[in-house]
Nucleic acid binder design. Structure first.
Lengths: 203, 203
DNA sequence: TGACAAAGCGGAACACTGCTCCGTATCGTT
DNA sequence: AACGATACGGAGCAGTGTTCCGCTTTGTCA
């Protein structure tokens, strides 16, 4: 409040040194650039070199690779999360909103080389990434899903967590073959969600 | 020709040395064991150690990791491939056959620690794995799909290749969270395949 | 301004893994 | 038994993640 401290501790927290914040910014920019060309699992050394800092620095600012990835993409994830309620408000078909929102998410994943792979990877250093994405987006997805169920557009059995992971999984390895288009399969998944009133009342 | 040769070449192919075939068997057994405990991307050294051979030997018999994985699981993949036509013949609903067959495939993938991950990985040494699985199973899946389309149970837009990859993707990372069950999502995908007789004008 | 402690930095060093290469051992044949 | 072909073993190189500690920079206080 009065003193420049952002945490709840009462110790006098000295604000970060100027070179530290500078380096953090530099690192974020460098990482973003490297991610584009070499994917999110580019060698740490490469990112450090691009930023012109030593490896100790990168590990100090971002202890795990996931921390760095999250920091780089945080804005886009936030934007995606915030788009959820907006889409829901902008239409009278919650299912259509869900579909649009999922489209946003897929676009995001698909345009980040290797991000989907990393997201599902169980290798060390990526759990936090997984956690952040899910913590932020699952609630949004839940709202959309609930709304669609309430509107009677889909059947109620699916959990948002599972759906999100499924969608993420479908986006893995998009670049390996032009015949594979995650979007088509995600659309299929969403269709599978629909309440089958057609064939129920097929009579 | 007269000499024991199994390939089409006419050079006198001497049969493999006894220790070589012995080692190959030992390696397969060791690899199978290690895959169970450490996953299909266990260190090559570990497999070599388990088999009691040097690393040169393992690379000579199985130049890439995919070759080893394929050799270990070949029988199961073959069994899965052969089950396709059988299932189709055993029912009058091709879609039901497809569903059962997909179930077999999912069971196979899901019980092999990390296999699904490897299958989709674009990392070096796994392309051949990808290729083998797909070459062997896509034709089977195509037949099932075609039959279901012909029977009017599903709509015709989906390619077997894409479906297989989608299913494989959905099986990635099953162990990371008990809330994630690939089977449910695969079922959803299959439901999405169904012909919605709404838009089917021929009714 | 100058001195000093804390904060931050750099990169050498270690561990682990994939993969190659070649001297040596083994096998099968004559 | 001898000998050439075949196969083996593992040292060694290269790439990467991660740690650790001596050195530099920064902010503060007299």
């Amino acid at each position: 409040m009065s003193t420049p401290s952002q945490s709840s501790g009462e110790v006098p927290v000295r604000s970060k040194r100027a070179d530290a914040v500078r380096n953090q910014q530099t690192l974020l920019a460098a990482a973003a650039a490297v991610f584009v060309t070499s994917g999110v699992d580019a060698p740490i050394r490469e990112i450090a070199a691009k930023a012109g800092v030593g490896m100790g620095t990168i590990y100090r600012h971002f202890p795990t690779r996931a921390d760095l990835v999250v920091a780089v993409y945080r804005h886009q994830v936030e934007a995606c999360a915030e788009a959820g309620p907006a889409l829901l408000a902008g239409t009278d078909s919650p299912f259509a909103a869900l579909r649009q929102w999922v489209g946003l998410f897929v676009d995001f994943l698909v345009t980040k080389h290797g991000l989907a792979n990393a997201l599902q990877s169980d290798s060390s250093g990526f759990e936090a990434l997984h956690t952040y994405f899910l913590d932020r987006l699952v609630p949004v997805c839940t709202r959309l899903l609930d709304a669609a169920v309430e509107a009677g557009e889909i059947r109620p059995c699916t959990q948002a967590y599972e759906l999100m992971r499924g969608i993420g999984n479908l986006c893995v390895g998009r670049d390996s073959d032009p015949r594979y288009d995650p979007r088509r399969l995600v659309e299929l998944l969403l269709q599978g969600l629909r309440r089958p009133d057609v064939d129920a009342g097929k009579r």
